[in-house]
Simulated assay, not measured.
Amino acid sequence: MPDRLPPLTALRAFDAAARHMSFARAAGELNVTPAALSFQIKSLEDHLGQPLFRRLNRAVELTAAGRILAPGAAEGFQTLSAAWLQTRRLRDNRTLTVTAGPAFTAKWLAPRFYDFARAHPDIDLRFSAGLRIMDFERDEIDVAIRFGLGPDPGLFAEPLAVEWLTPVMTPELAKRYPTPDDLSSAPLLFDDSLDFLDTKCDWAAWFRAAGMDFVPHHGVQFSQADHAIDAALAGAGVVLGRRALVVKDLDECRLVAPYRLALTLDAQFRFLCPEGLQERPHIKAFRKWIWSEIEKTANISEGLQLVAAKDVPPA
Rank of each mutant, 00 (worst) to 15 (best):
R91F: 08
S292M: 10
F113R: 13
T99I: 00
A174N: 06
A106S: 15
I145Q: 01
A36K: 08
D198M: 07
A186H: 00
H120M: 08
A83G: 09
L183W: 01
L149D: 13
E302L: 11
A24F: 04
R25Y: 12
S22I: 14
D311K: 08
P274F: 08
Y114G: 12
G150C: 07
Q86S: 14
A64S: 03
W84A: 15
T170N: 03
T264W: 01
I290M: 12
F113G: 08
A285F: 02
T179M: 09
T9F: 14
A225G: 05
A59C: 03
W206Q: 03
F269P: 00
R88D: 10
R91S: 14
L306T: 03
R126C: 12
M1R: 08
E279A: 13
V143R: 03
L160W: 06
D230H: 11
V220R: 12
K107H: 05
V238W: 06
L80P: 01
G219H: 02
L56F: 00
R132P: 05
C253L: 15
L277A: 04
E61I: 07
Q40T: 09
Q86W: 08
L272S: 05
H47N: 02
P151M: 00
M212T: 11
L240Q: 07
A161P: 02
L183V: 04
R132D: 13
L173P: 02
L233T: 04
N57G: 11
R138C: 02
V215T: 13
T63H: 07
D198T: 14
R118W: 09
R25T: 07
W203Q: 07
F39W: 15
R132V: 14
D142M: 08
R280H: 11
R146N: 05
R176W: 10
T9I: 09
I290K: 02
D230S: 12
N299P: 03
E302M: 06
A70S: 15
R146K: 07
E163S: 10
M169N: 01
R280T: 09
L173A: 11
A74C: 14
L165Y: 05
L188R: 01
P151Q: 01
A209Y: 04
A35Q: 12
P313N: 01
W108M: 13
S223D: 05
H282G: 00
T95Q: 13
L155V: 06
F136A: 10
T179R: 14
T297I: 12
A234C: 06
R208P: 05
L263I: 01
T105C: 14
F136K: 02
E163M: 14
T166N: 09
F190S: 09
R58P: 00
L37P: 06
A267K: 11
E172H: 08
L30E: 12
N299H: 13
D124V: 10
L272I: 01
A100I: 00
L52R: 03
G49C: 07
Q278C: 02
P171I: 03
V246S: 01
A64E: 12
P34S: 06
F196K: 10
L165C: 04
V256R: 03
G76K: 12
A35G: 10
I229R: 01
A205N: 09
R91C: 11
G49W: 00
L96A: 12
Q224P: 00
L44Q: 12
V256I: 12
I294Y: 07
D192W: 10
T99D: 01
A298S: 15
D198L: 10
R208Y: 03
L11H: 06
